[in-house]
């Protein structure tokens, strides 16, 4: 009969030899193996002190970037919301008033910008769709909550701080491969 797998082993019910009946050689063999493990590298990562590094292209919690002058880049064009396969992004656009030039980069801006982190699948399509380089995915994690409501992140959680010291670095994810992928015209959403 054809064996079902390549890994099947023949089992025999032969009588144990004297050496096997003694158990001791087998026990000593086992003890040698465990003793070897004493000196192996520990697999534990000491979590709060040491953190497991994320992959450079890790897609985590979003950030809405500001430009060099600290103005919000987002113009509420809605392309990210259209590109979002999970329909997690909603926004309300508003017109910039005179005197708000230091806050918003262009005449139109997002008065409300919300991402539902429970819906988001962290695909990164919003990042690719954005023509203003305003939204990026970062290596930060979305914290756990007790209710559903707090998972809808508003601008206060998404927009990065204006202080140049506290800006969120998104350069790590923008590898040449990622940038080339974003320019690739054969993806429909890039057209």
């Amino acid at each position: 009969m054809e064996p079902l797998t390549q890994r099947s082993k023949t089992v025999s019910d032969k009588k144990m030899t004297f050496a096997e009946k003694l158990y001791l050689p087998a026990i000593l063999g086992g003890m040698r193996i465990t003793f070897g493990h004493l000196f192996k590298k520990k697999t534990t990562i000491q979590f709060p002190e040491a953190k497991r590094p994320f992959a450079g292209v890790y897609r985590g919690r979003h950030v809405l970037k500001r430009d060099e002058a600290g103005r919000e880049r987002c113009t509420a064009c809605g392309l990210c919301a259209v590109a979002c396969p999970a329909e997690a992004i909603t926004m309300v656009a508003a017109e910039r008033k005179p005197g708000e030039e230091g806050l918003y980069r262009e005449e139109k801006y997002a008065a409300v910008y919300e991402i539902n982190m429970l819906r988001c699948i962290f695909c990164g399509d919003c990042e690719e769709a954005c023509p203003k380089e305003a939204i990026f995915l970062t290596d930060r994690l979305v914290a756990s909550e007790y209710q559903r409501k707090p998972f809808i992140y508003g601008k206060e959680l998404l927009v990065e701080p204006a202080d140049p010291e506290k800006r969120i670095d998104v350069s790590e994810r923008q590898t040449p491969e990622v940038l080339a992928f974003k320019k690739d015209r054969q993806h429909k959403h890039n057209n």
């Binding site: 493990h37 004493l38 697999t43």
Partner: peptide, 8 residues
């Protein structure tokens, strides 16, 4: 026990 199991 930890060392035998590659833990701390």
């Amino acid at each position: 026990a930890g060392w035998f199991q590659d833990r701390h």
